[in-house]
């Protein structure tokens, strides 16, 4: 299988805060890599470095064997191949859903509008939003907005999709409608790097899990190993933080994500 993305020993500091110390990864085509770790461990920064939203201080990043880090000029050409979806959706509020979807493919890729529109309609239908093409984003729920954001990224036909805690701002009942779309994409062979706090989802979607702490890769394993018999003490402690000891009655299955509960 072809290696699509290589991250080699990258480091990144903001002022005196060394967020990434030495991170290396590689990703084969069609695989899903899930990055987990405590808050502030550098997960989001890692994704932002991969698509050039942040410049790295050391190391290099290669897309299909070509170095993409360190250049500033044609970043938009790199980003056309690397899609990214954020926690805060970031749909364009002044455009209707369909215009949000058309902007990238039509203006950045120069594809014919009608062709993209047909494709956008198909994908909206696929994520259950066929009737929302003509509305403004602010009339949508969080889960609907995030599904639109996923479609917007996918319409660029990226080689890799980066997902940065895309359900962290959602109400619990909306999380699954978004994650099911992601699982669907994974089944279709989309190459993805996913940062998430949803451990059950991580286990379901991942081909490989990377545990990041303090800017370093601490453990890297297939999900069945990482979630059930993690090799490092730090990963064990991290995973334990998602379990609550039962008090008067048995703990409810599923109610296990402390960080989501505190998210807005």
């Amino acid at each position: 299988m072809d290696t699509i993305l290589q991250v080699r020993h990258i480091g990144k500091a903001f002022e005196h805060n060394q967020v990434l110390r030495d991170v290396s990864l590689e990703l084969d085509e069609g695989r899903v890599l899930v990055v987990v770790g405590p808050s502030g461990c550098g997960k989001s920064t890692l994704l932002r470095c991969i698509n050039g939203l942040e410049q790295i201080d050391s190391g290099e990043i290669l897309l299909r064997g070509e170095v993409i880090s360190g250049q500033r000029k044609n970043l938009h050409l790199v980003r056309q191949k690397i899609g990214m979806v954020f926690q805060s959706y970031d749909l364009f509020p002044h455009m209707r859903v369909m215009d949000n979807l058309l902007l990238g493919p039509v203006k950045a890729l120069g594809r014919p509008k009608e062709e993209v529109r047909a494709e956008a309609e198909r994908m909206l239908a696929r994520v259950g939003l066929a009737d929302k093409a003509g509305v403004y984003p602010r009339t949508l729920s969080g889960g609907q907005r995030q599904r639109v954001a996923l479609v917007r990224a996918m319409l660029m036909q990226p080689e890799i999709l980066l997902l940065d805690e895309i359900t962290a701002a959602l109400d619990p009942e909306m999380v699954s409608e978004v994650l099911n779309v992601v699982l669907d994409l994974a089944r279709d062979g989309m190459t993805m790097v996913i940062v998430t706090h949803e451990m059950r989802f991580a286990e379901a979607v991942a081909d490989e899990v990377v545990f990041l702490e303090d800017g370093c890769v601490v453990e890297r394993n297939p999900p069945e190993v990482f979630f059930h018999r993690p090799e490092t003490e730090r990963a064990k402690r991290f995973l334990q933080s998602f379990d609550y000891a039962p008090r008067r009655r048995a703990a409810q299955p599923g109610a296990n994500t402390a960080e989501e509960q505190s998210a807005p």
């Binding site: 939203l53 970043l75 938009h76 050409l77 980003r79 899609g83 970031d90 902007l103």
Partner: peptide, 27 residues
């Protein structure tokens, strides 16, 4: 206009100028 709007524009492969024109300026 939130900084993340500019990032969102650039993340769908728009050039910085296109991002200003289609995303930032109208808002």
């Amino acid at each position: 206009v939130d900084r993340s709007q500019r990032e969102a524009g650039e993340c769908i492969g728009l050039t910085p100028l296109q991002t200003v024109r289609y995303v930032v300026l109208p808002q």
